[in-house]
Amino acid sequence: MKMSKEKLKIFYIANARIPTEKAHGIQIMKMCEAFAKNGAEVTLVLPKRRNPIKENLFSYYNVEPTFKIKKLPALDFLFIDSPITFALSTLVFSISTYCYLFFKKGNFVVYTRGEMVLSLAMFINKRLFWETHIKPSNINWYKRVIKNTGGLIVVTKYYKDLMIKEFNVLPDKVLYSPDGVDLKIFDIGTEKEEARKKLGLPTDEKIIVYTGSLLKWKGVETLVESAEFLDSDNTVYVVGDLKKDDNYYLPPIDSSSNIKFVGLKSYKEIPLWLKASDVLVLMGTDKNETSKYYTSPLKLFEYMASRRPIVAPSLPSLLDILDESNSFLVEPDNPKKLAEKIKFVLNNGEKSKDIAEQAYNGSKNYSWDKRAENIIKFIQMNIRDL
């Protein structure tokens, strides 16, 4: 039976606690908004769990309420984080999702990311579209699933090539679609001095900013170590949550005095931090496969939209988007080289301004709306014969 030409109906299944301070919450909410803007009827399906963040989902992410949100029963292990509790909560949420979708009539597609594809593929098959950001650790579990889905969405070119070569996915069944940015939030007219006053930052310093996670594979350690090679009037601000967790980087007590860890800030405040900077630093490491080949960090596109020069490690995942025309590339995992590149940017204002403007112009190609438009076209192409 062929899909009719009626409005595309999308159920976005996300096994996530939303709102969350993590980047995946932003991506999911922004994509639901963008799908809706592109004419789809969208329902975001979430597990019903307790959440320390009490703010409304739409206001928290500055998203228009153009789509529905449905919360389904799930086990709630708010303060117990382990593989067993995660597996149990995923199982219960999967059963709830199956029951919910079973009674849905008409033609629709299911969109998901992460491990939920394993359970959804048992009964959705060709109407299931999977966005995947990292190579599965257990390939054999996913090979059958990948073969039976309607299509795959990946965020790096390397991952697309891998899917074709290693998973034998047909090229027209996998879409390369890097992450995006909400230009109306990050392309703001606030001047540097004004942003600094609002944040209580000094106006006589050269400010270097990193925003985002301090997970070890993000490579933030290199930035911290580079601080000792910077000039005395250079200050690095790390905007991200410090966690006492083996997976996260914790700076040593004797870290350089010109680096400041300001903690987690709200999503709405991040554009001000970017505007307050002289240089934005994107980190990554050649020592981690995810960092090297699979990541499409939201901060990359947010940096581009902010019209500030970007210093970034020369890694395959980032070179999908960046080159010498829109950023200042540096050897990964080399603190001294990183500091030299930052100082070069600070001392070459006109060149830095030109490079930042090139990045800004490029950011217009990576809006969430354009990303959703391309994915909808991909979905429609792959369901036209169903």
Rank of each mutant, 00 (worst) to 15 (best):
N288Y: 06
D187I: 01
T285V: 05
Y293F: 14
I53W: 03
N168W: 14
E33Y: 02
K351E: 13
P83V: 06
G39V: 03
D179A: 09
G150T: 10
D323H: 07
K206V: 04
P171M: 07
V154G: 02
I84D: 05
P83C: 06
I355N: 02
G263N: 01
T97C: 14
L120W: 05
W141F: 12
V110I: 12
M1I: 13
N347S: 15
R144F: 15
S89G: 12
Y303V: 04
V145F: 07
D161C: 01
S314F: 11
K265Q: 12
V155T: 14
A276L: 08
F102V: 08
S256M: 07
L46T: 01
N234Y: 10
I95R: 11
E21Q: 13
V109I: 12
G362Y: 10
L57F: 07
D278T: 08
Y60M: 10
I310T: 02
S291W: 03
S266T: 13
K377R: 14
K275T: 09
V145W: 08
K70S: 14
S317L: 02
N168Y: 14
L152D: 00
G240K: 00
E221V: 00
F35V: 03
S256T: 08
N38S: 03
K9A: 05
K7A: 09
V169E: 04
E21I: 14
M29V: 15
T97K: 07
I208K: 14
P47H: 07
K243T: 01
D278R: 11
N326R: 07
D323Q: 09
R50D: 12
S96T: 05
D76I: 08
A372I: 03
L322T: 03
S137N: 13
Y159T: 00
L120G: 09
E6W: 03
G349I: 11
V224P: 00
K105P: 06
L298R: 02
N148T: 12
L162W: 15
S306L: 08
S232H: 09
V117I: 10
P178E: 09
P309L: 00
S363Q: 01
K70N: 09
P65G: 04
E340T: 11
E115D: 15
I146G: 13
V63K: 07
E33K: 04
L162G: 07
G284L: 08
S82L: 10
Y293I: 10
K265N: 05
E191R: 12
K37C: 08
